[in-house]
Design a protein around this nucleic acid. Structure first.
Lengths: 144, 144
DNA sequence: GACATATAATAATCCTAACTTACTATATGG
DNA sequence: CCATATAGTAAGTTAGGATTATTATATGTC
């Protein structure tokens, strides 16, 4: 691993891993299931019923417009509804529908299994270490 | 960090890091520079002058058709040429043009700096550990 | 040698997940 | 009251992948 090897480097490895995760996820998710981005949004909404769109976009670190589209998709599938905010007529509060339950359950299972599978060669200490390093790198990138 | 926390997990962290890397890269690359995927392909071609398209696609673990498009883009920018393979009239060999040199140099610098910046909070041992774990996870994902 | 099968490249089309720019409606601080 | 800020959205773009089907050429088998 020479200092000049740009190809086998953390950056490109992360891109590879990201793509492989998507591939395996897509393969395991049924027709009726959610894309990774939809799944992530739905899991956050489940934890924060009544969140505003803007707050959601901030949590996900995406642009408001990107959020709009993801919520459109979730609404089309009948998994969320936008409720007018009684305290701010510009804003909408996002709520899960009753249909969302089974989707959330299924998607949690897929994600759980995927994580377990991809980390299966790491012992507990390595997993913790890896998780810690990922967080450090993510935080650092946010300052760049 | 409960065992049931799907949101702050290695998988989603990798997705975040991937997106942030792209953001910083795009911000640092000039108008005239290459996208990450183009850069990666070009760096491999530089190491393997005369490689076949199919071989390239295999190295990058992408579909042949995806390779075609990336090479179209590089050819449009005048950075590579497709030369008919004298030993196989179906195949093309990919060569760099003379114009490619400065692009490669610039892109290497951007990538190098980005990697250094994003890993700046890790000591040498942690970096090596991180690199090793990424490779393990990537290899495991390829079997799933 | 003929023919079935495999392989290299590509055309056409689609998908996910992001982005920017510009607009409307509503809040809010001087 | 008005200037400015904020929430949401319409329209359009981009990167980087995918699938399916087609053409040209190689290759193994009988």
């Amino acid at each position: 691993m020479s200092a000049d090897n740009h190809l086998n480097s953390p950056g490109f490895l992360i891109t590879d891993i990201h793509r492989q995760m998507r591939r395996v996820y897509a393969h395991r998710a049924e027709e009726s299931d959610l894309t990774p981005a939809q799944a992530k949004a739905l899991l956050i909404i489940a934890k924060r019923q009544g969140v505003k769109q803007k707050e959601l976009a901030d949590i996900l670190e995406i642009q408001p417009m990107t959020m709009v589209k993801q919520l459109d998709q979730l609404a089309e599938q009948g998994l969320i509804i936008r409720v007018p905010d009684p305290n701010d007529r510009r804003a909408h509060l996002i709520h899960l529908t009753e249909d969302a339950g089974p989707y959330i359950k299924r998607v949690k299972k897929i994600i759980n299994t995927l994580h377990k599978d991809m980390l299966q060669d790491l012992d507990e200490h390595e997993s913790e270490q890896f998780f810690r390093l990922l967080n450090q790198i993510r935080d650092r990138l946010l300052t760049l």
